[in-house]
């Protein structure tokens, strides 16, 4: 009990980021702790309590999700590389309009939900809980290389979605404050 309770905020936060709403997150957290309390004796290494709780949470989430809707398989509509997209959008900067960055930040959660869970969990732990790659690897029991590749891939997918969303917004330009007026040719 003393082991698990301090991780309540983490569990709820991850649940919220995975489900995208407060109600499901509360249910998921409650269910996670109910199972954790029932099976606390199975936890051999106390220092792994956090990882153990997140494993329970993740399993419950995946089980619940598979009942509601199948996991996303197609994650990228265009196949464009994020950096190419970035270049494309910023290739001829000429706009001066301000961008609603607050609005985009609010969109991040929705865009995150469009990513497969295998990218979502590392992203949430990295950005929301400020875990290192090593900590994420230990928490979700994956090799660090896999975590790094999922984190990198998930990050680029999310940023691409952010760029497209911003592009779609009427008259909006991405971060015009950073737009270069330089006409210098790119090297390489």
């Amino acid at each position: 009990m003393r082991l698990a309770y301090p991780h309540l905020s983490l569990v709820f936060n991850v649940a919220f980021r995975l489900t995208g709403n407060c109600y499901d997150a509360e249910d998921l957290t409650q269910e996670t702790f109910t199972i954790a309390y029932q099976k606390i004796r199975q936890l051999r290494e106390k220092e792994k309590c956090r990882a153990w709780l997140l494993t329970i949470l993740r399993n419950l989430y995946l089980r619940g999700r598979s009942k509601k809707q199948p996991e996303l398989l197609e994650v990228d509509e265009s196949g464009d590389d994020y950096w190419l997209l970035l270049e494309k959008y910023f290739g001829a900067p000429s706009h001066d309009e301000l961008v609603d960055e607050v609005g985009l930040a609010e969109e991040v959660q929705k865009l995150l939900l469009d990513l497969p869970e295998k990218y979502r969990l590392p992203l949430v732990l990295y950005y929301s809980e400020e875990f290192s790659c090593q900590q994420i690897a230990e928490t979700i029991d994956l090799p660090i290389g896999t975590v790094m590749s999922r984190l990198g891939r998930g990050r680029e997918l999310l940023k691409k979605k952010m760029l497209r969303r911003q592009r779609q917004a009427e008259g909006a330009v991405i971060f015009p404050a950073f737009a270069s007026k330089s006409g210098k040719k790119r090297t390489g």
Binding site: S9, F12, N13, F16, R17, C22, A25, W83, L86, E87, F90, P93, E101, L104, A105, E106, E107, V108, Q109, L112, L123, V124, Y127, S128, E129, R155, L158, K159, M162, L163, I174, F175, F178, A179, S180, K181, S182, K184, R186
Partner: peptide
Amino acid sequence: PDCAMLRRVDRKLEETIRTGLGRV
């Protein structure tokens, strides 16, 4: 400047994600 801009925009996106995924 083009690369500098890419870096700055990427960093801005990075900050936006961090803000958007702040702890609840």
